[in-house]
């Protein structure tokens, strides 16, 4: 959790496995609008890759993968992508989240809706990934300044 793992096997396996988990998460997000999966599942897989590094490398050493300070702003950005694209449709005269109403030259409404759902899936994936990482960081945070250290008696 807060300290890096001592075992070389755990470190090497988690480093290798996290990359494949995250590539699979990207696959699930990108193919989410016409096959099983989607933004939530892909985002949770991306978060699982980050959390695997967080648990084995320690909290400070794993900051370059996804810093704690930018996790919550990225979650807000994902929510803005999700809800804001629906608001953009309103300016083109369509209903909320009716992506086919945007007039893109050279594309029929079905393909515009196809790409609109893809953008929304990316926003959901970003929000879910950074939200789960943010929850984990808050759970393992060592707040020695503001209260007693509750980390004793656990896994150390």
């Amino acid at each position: 959790m807060t300290n890096p793992s001592q075992s070389l096997i755990i470190k090497m396996v988690s480093r290798t496995l996290a990359a494949f988990i995250q590539v699979f998460g990207l696959y699930v997000i990108i193919h989410g609008h016409y096959s099983p999966g989607g933004g939530f599942q892909g985002g949770a897989l991306l978060a699982a890759g980050v959390l695997l590094i967080r648990m084995t490398e320690g909290r400070e050493a794993s900051q370059p993968t996804l810093a704690t300070a930018i996790a919550t702003p990225l979650a807000s950005l994902g929510a803005v992508i999700f809800a804001g694209l629906g608001v953009v449709i309103l300016f083109f005269g369509g209903n909320y989240m009716d992506y086919g109403a945007v007039p893109v030259p050279g594309m029929e409404p079905a393909m515009i809706r196809y790409y609109g759902i893809l953008i929304v899936e990316v926003g959901i994936g970003l929000a879910v990934m950074t939200g789960l990482v943010s929850i984990f960081d808050d759970m393992v945070r060592t707040n020695r300044q503001s209260g007693p250290d509750l980390g004793k008696g656990g896994l150390s």
């Binding site: 959790m1 949770a44 699982a48 959390l51 789960l132 759970m139 656990g154 896994l155």
Partner: peptide, 13 residues
Amino acid sequence: GIVGVFFVAAIYR
């Protein structure tokens, strides 16, 4: 995946 990680984090605290 995620629930197991959160349970381990809760046990850690």
